[in-house]
Design a protein around this nucleic acid. Structure first.
Length: 507
RNA sequence: CGGGAAGUGGCGCAGGUGGUAGCGCAUCUGGUUUGGGACCAGAGGGUCGCAGGUUCGAGUCCUGUCUUCCCGACCA
């Protein structure tokens, strides 16, 4: 049965905003930082650039993990775990990979502490210096390929389709909760194949897994594309990516999938014997998404009242808030609430009944809005008389009354409606903030702000790309897959170009 | 890593020229309340980021260091 919530009342923003949260218009960056902390997703820790992910935030990450993990397994992958520490020597083996990561590696040099002879506390024991320093993994290609060498002898050992969920460390100078932290959580898939075609196919398949997940579950529309040589992963022949547009008009890379060619196989001497008896190097891919997706989620949907979560990722999709005077009224309302919860759970909806007497209903309304719970059901004495409930949806801030018998069927439909409505809204935003530029002046003027995605011609050289970045801060986010071929002239050099590429300011 | 700003109860802040730390919110207790962040009365809580130094005396002055925010270079 189709169900549409009528907008009966829209709460004025001024009413609920401002008390705690900076508005997006005032200071987008500040809004984001405050929101992450106030919605109880994460907080900074005493360690520079390292965050504590709090239970509510981690619950969202767990949903992301669970859904992706299922998709990885459905495409034939299995999980494994490789060490956090990588011997320094492994790192020296693939030249461009070293270049890419050397500047942001944490290094373990000692393995023991001792009491500080000069007073309290402990100091590093200089006698306990490691013979070979260990790198805290910024990504695991090197240690994995050192291992794959042992796993692979024959074409019968291929393909290897492995994923790992892990933490990695990249010593970033400027950090922001979820968007860029020194330590972050991610998954990294590492596969080995007998042929180039199969490896490319794998990289494309996983990009598609990412894109589908991000669009269907996170309700974030993405562009699928290829990175330019300059933006490519260190050590890759080709980097596929999904790019999303945030509400402030800046782009955010949401996931990448790399065709690594035979670079790592050569660096770690991983060969296999073919059917014909010849020795050949293995073809590789790697692909990953990180807790940065949390940042994308927050910045795509949320508003000045707080977080807005798509139902498919909300730790609880519905919260029931009782409004009562005295214990008898609470008991009566609880009975109705328990019944609704049972029905909703049977319909696959996650529900929380907040019957705490320590906070008033108004306080709870604001709190759950801040935390982005998709649907709120309020039940008060008037509802007891009328057999009704008040249903409010977070994304539109609209409210409606419905009969209690309707809830079990109407709410699942409403959640679906919210899920698709969030995607549509984000897609509209992206379309409204995508434009073309044909001249340098036009391009330069656009890039004075954060214009969203700008489609423009480019002559295909890294020099031009770098020059454009230097002059405008804009980077080429991607060359869209299946891009329309269109003759034109590079906006900077005027050299011939066969297609438009996507420029934006990026996170 | 360069340039700026800031660190004082859980959070947000005040503390000219050095003299025994204060406000709002939150917390706790009691009572009245409960359809959009309740009210009254009382109470608890801080070695002022950390380490040195100057001084009879440092939240305040000096040096170093750590963390956070903003702006650049780097990056998922």
């Amino acid at each position: 049965m189709p169900f549409r919530l009528q907008i009966t009342k829209v709460i004025p923003t001024l009413y609920t905003m401002g008390k705690h949260l900076t508005s997006r218009e005032q200071d987008y960056s500040k809004w984001y930082n405050e929101l992450v902390v106030k919605a109880d997703l994460a907080q900074n820790s005493g360690v520079r650039g390292s965050m504590v992910i709090k239970p509510y935030g981690f619950a969202i990450w767990e949903s992301i993990q669970a859904d992706l993990d299922r998709r990885f397994k459905e495409t034939g992958h299995m999980n494994a775990y490789f060490p956090l520490f990588i011997p320094k020597s492994y790192f020296s083996k693939e030249a461009s990979h070293v270049d890419g990561f050397a500047k942001e590696c944490a290094v373990v040099t000692h393995y023991r502490l001792k009491d500080d002879p000069n007073g309290g506390g402990v100091v590093v024991d200089p006698a306990a210096k490691l013979e070979e320093e260990l790198i805290v993994r910024p990504t695991s290609e090197t240690i994995i390929w050192d291992t794959y060498k042992d796993w692979i002898q024959s074409y019968r050992d291929l393909p290897i389709l492995v994923n790992q969920w892990a933490n990695v460390v990249r010593w970033e100078m400027r950090t922001r909760l979820f968007l860029r932290t020194a330590e972050f959580l991610w998954q990294e898939g590492h596969t080995a194949h007998a042929t180039k075609e199969e490896a490319i196919q794998e990289a494309e398949t996983m990009l598609d897994v990412y894109a589908t997940f991000v669009e269907e579950v996170m309700a974030i529309p993405v562009l699928r594309g290829l990175k330019t040589e300059g933006e490519r992963f260190a050590g890759a022949l080709e980097t596929y990516c999904i790019e999303a547009l945030m509400q402030d008009g800046k782009a955010l890379q949401a996931g990448t999938s790399h065709f690594l060619g035979q670079n790592f196989a050569k660096a770690f001497d991983v060969k296999f014997q073919t059917k014909e008896g010849t020795q050949e190097y293995v073809w590789a891919t790697s692909w990953g998404v990180s807790t940065r997706l949390m940042g994308a989620l927050i910045m795509t949907h949320s508003d000045d009242n707080g977080l807005v979560l798509p139902p498919k990722l909300a730790p609880y999709q519905v919260v029931i808030v009782p409004i009562y005077k005295g214990q008898e009224q609470l008991d009566a309302i609880s009975e109705v609430a328990e019944g609704l919860m049972k029905d909703l759970r049977a319909a696959g909806v996650t529900v929380k009944f907040d019957n705490r007497d320590t906070h008033k209903p108004g306080w709870k309304f604001n709190q759950y809005e801040l935390q982005g719970v998709p649907v709120r059901i309020a039940i008060g004495p008037k509802d007891l008389e009328k057999g009704s409930v008040e249903v409010a949806r977070r994304d539109t801030l609209s409210k409606q009354f419905m009969q209690q018998e309707e809830v079990a069927t109407a709410i699942p439909a409403l959640l679906e409606e919210i899920q698709s409505s969030l995607f549509e809204k984000a897609l509209n935003f992206r379309e409204e903030n995508s434009q073309t530029a044909d001249t340098w002046e036009e391009f330069k003027t656009l890039m004075k702000g954060n214009p969203g995605f700008v489609y423009a011609h480019w002559d295909g050289t890294t020099e031009t790309e770098d020059k454009i970045k230097e002059l405008t801060k804009a980077t080429i986010r991607c060359i869209p897959l299946n891009n329309k071929q269109e003759e034109g002239k590079c906006i900077l050099t005027g050299n011939p170009s066969a297609q438009r590429v996507v420029f934006a300011k990026a996170y």
